[in-house]
């Protein structure tokens, strides 16, 4: 299957157009998910990442958030029916990169080639090009990328681009015991989502639906939700958009911001020398945002 880079951060050279390719997608059916975290374990195993043995924060969420070594985590939400205290739901969502068709992270990234989008739809980070500025974090409408404390570079789910490139499904899909995580062409997964939604509606979940938000051009990770009218119940934005800051950055403000970026980089270097790498991104971000605010 053809695999070209169709978008590359902070790059103006045209991307390859000659070959056709098929868009792929992962479908997460939250109504089949039992929150067992096998996907988290498979992700750590395949990608050779090990998060810290953390602590319990009073919920089942563990690790408690996405980190540079936890590229997917289960998030548990409790919903109670105000009219019947025994009629409640424990909603569980596998969180991770959505692989947006219109990726806010890539648009925000100032470092050439640190973020790419393949023709199959996967949005991938190339850490060797990453300068650790954290713009991708700001640019992501789903709050997914994380900066590593050990190398100050951004990490997130790759949709197992290495496995997919050789015709394998992502590790989480392979391991999911209930078949809640599926993988195929975007077309197949969209159809599969429709089938699931029909079944759920027949089971009495009138609001069941797919989550493939148009605000980011659709995603290559989609959900089936029991109540698609309220995605925020599971911590998903109703109508995700690339943040205005990033849109501005990509639009009229870009030349100015580039200059700001240069300044910021110097500031960042100063900061790095003084305080170490951990907070570079915040520092840079604050300075650039100040610049952008001034432009407005």
């Amino acid at each position: 299957m053809a695999l070209d880079i169709i978008r590359r951060s902070a790059t103006t050279t045209p991307t390859p157009q000659a070959r056709d390719s098929v868009e792929l997608a992962k479908l997460i059916d939250t109504t089949r998910c039992i929150g067992c975290k096998a996907c988290q374990v498979a992700c750590m195993e395949w990608n050779d990442i090990r998060d810290d043995v953390g602590s319990v924060d009073g919920t089942y969420n563990n690790p408690t958030d996405l980190t540079s070594s936890s590229w997917t985590v289960m998030r548990f939400f409790e919903k109670e029916d105000p009219n019947d205290r025994f009629n409640f739901e424990w909603l569980i969502r596998k969180d991770g990169c959505m692989h947006c068709a219109d990726p806010g992270c890539l648009k925000a990234c100032p470092s050439p080639g640190a973020i790419v989008q393949y023709s199959n739809g996967i949005v991938d980070f190339n850490q060797e090009n990453c300068i650790g500025c954290g713009y991708c974090v700001t640019g992501c409408p789903f709050n997914v990328p994380r900066i590593s404390k050990s190398d100050s570079k951004a990490y997130k789910c790759t949709l197992c681009s290495d496995r997919v490139a050789v015709g394998l499904e992502p590790a989480c899909v392979k391991t999911c015991p209930t078949g809640a995580i599926m993988f195929g062409t975007k077309e197949q997964m969209t159809a599969q989502a429709e089938t699931r939604v029909t079944e759920l509606q027949g089971r009495g979940h009138a609001q069941a639906g797919a989550y493939d938000p148009a605000g980011v051009g659709g995603t290559h990770v989609m959900y089936v939700l029991k109540d698609a009218s309220q995605p925020q119940l599971m911590g998903l934005p109703d109508d995700p958009q690339i943040s205005p800051t990033v849109s501005l950055w990509k639009g009229v403000a870009k030349p100015v911001a580039m200059a700001g970026m240069a300044l910021a980089a110097i500031g960042g270097l100063f900061h790095y020398v003084m305080k170490g790498p951990n907070e570079v991104s915040k520092e840079v971000e604050a300075e650039v945002e100040k610049e952008l605010e001034a432009e407005k």
């Binding site: 988290q40 043995v53 953390g54 602590s55 319990v56 563990n62 690790p63």
Partner: peptide
């Protein structure tokens, strides 16, 4: 096992 300890680390 480290992986299991990561996803459920502490007694509750």
């Amino acid at each position: 096992v480290e992986l299991n300890a990561v996803v459920q680390p502490e007694q509750f």
